[in-house]
Design a binder for these strands. Structure first.
Lengths: 116, 116
DNA sequence: CAAACCTTGACACAATCGTGGTAACGTTGG
DNA sequence: CCAACGTTACCACGATTGTGTCAAGGTTTG
């Protein structure tokens, strides 16, 4: 019984049950399932939900923004394309270090090559 | 006459004049202005507009997605927060080598130091 | 000067995001 | 068994995105 049901998880994370299902659809936090299909939120999921909520609140970002960041982090081709586009533009006249960011999961293609 | 007016720029980039103004509001491509306030698109802006259009078409991303990426690229605190959150999650149950993550940790903080 | 540009601001509209409900139906536990 | 809870699938609704159009007014140029 290490895992909470959706309403219990909602209680301790501050999200509504409705939103937990929505968050799941965005792919950001995916709970396990019981044999009969009940969502089961374990400590890791609960933690992610709490930190996600804090992230959204601290900065003015939406779930779709974080979802896009996740997509960038897992799609090397997309990441490179975006990175290239941004690097070519000082979008703000502000001096911004050439896009180092997005390097999270970089050289993934290399890993993929060696993985296959 | 190195710069084009908004309708001329629209012509050669494939965007509509309306969208060029919209793109400008997202902060992704900001043309210069003439003394009387006319937008002036030079070769760099025209190129960005073309590559931006190609980027949006090739992957299924929106202007707001690229705008968020730009925000991440220019806001170190936000970038770190998102990066941290994503690193803690194997957004895809896909097997992710812990060793790979650790490898990026190394040069990450050095970059942050030079960013400020 | 007048036609042909440009500007900002507004109205409009479909699609999506972020939320909340409710209905119909399966599961669990006292 | 049945109350309490879970599931999916919808309806709803304000806010934002992405787009077009139009109005009122300044600018450029033949």
């Amino acid at each position: 019984m290490e895992a909470l049901t959706i309403h219990e998880a909602a209680e301790t994370t501050g999200w509504s049950a409705r939103m937990l299902r929505y968050v799941e659809r965005t792919g950001l936090v995916t709970p396990g399932r019981s044999a009969s299909g009940y969502r089961l939120y374990g400590p890791p999921e609960l933690q992610r939900l709490r930190t996600l909520k804090e992230l959204l609140g601290r900065f003015d970002v939406g779930l779709s923004d974080v979802a896009f960041a996740a997509r960038i982090a897992s799609d090397g081709e997309l990441r490179m394309a975006v990175e290239d586009w941004l690097r070519a533009q000082p979008s703000r006249p502000e001096h911004v270090e050439p896009a180092d960011w997005l390097r999270f999961e970089q050289d993934k293609h290399q890993r993929l090559l060696t993985a296959a």
